[in-house]
Amino acid sequence: MPNRVFTEELFSISSNESQELAANLTEKLADLYRSSPALGRYFSKAEIQAFRNGSVIADYQLTFLMPEEQQDQLRNTTLSREMVFNVFRQFLYDQEGDESGQTYIDPVSLNMFLRH
């Protein structure tokens, strides 16, 4: 989040500044994935794990729920790493020119795993 300045208060996820920023970012991520035609029906929640120095770097977790009988197919197609990343990337492209500043996702920072 290049338009934000990292402060000492952001080191603690329980601080007021962290809580406010986390709530705002969580809402944006949830709205983004809920509104996705491909991913919306599987999206469950977004959670901010931590903030790090950079401009402000947010570590977050997205949770998608998949029907058990379709897990292999969905994991390899609809809920693939590429699809989740591309939905976010399209959102960023759509925001270009927005006066609030750019948000950036590092492609190698996206880690995905299956939980039962």
Rank of each mutant, 00 (worst) to 15 (best):
D106P: 08
Q19R: 15
L92V: 09
D98Q: 05
E9A: 15
N111G: 07
F88K: 12
L110T: 07
P107T: 03
N111C: 07
E9Y: 07
A46C: 10
I57G: 08
T26Y: 05
T7F: 02
R4T: 06
E68C: 01
P2V: 06
K28E: 11
A23S: 07
F11V: 05
S100N: 12
M1T: 11
Y104K: 08
T63H: 02
G101D: 03
F6E: 08
S36P: 12
E27C: 06
D72E: 13
D72S: 12
L29R: 09
V87S: 01
R34E: 13
L62E: 01
Y104C: 08
N3F: 14
L29M: 14
L65N: 06
R4H: 14
F88A: 11
I13G: 09
D106I: 15
S14R: 07
V5Q: 10
H116M: 00
L110M: 09
S100H: 10
I48Y: 03
N86Y: 01
A50R: 13
S14C: 05
F43R: 02
R81D: 06
S12M: 10
L10V: 10
N3I: 04
R41T: 04
N3A: 15
Y60Q: 03
K28G: 10
R75S: 05
R52Y: 14
S100I: 05
T103S: 09
E99R: 14
E8Y: 12
S109R: 00
L79V: 12
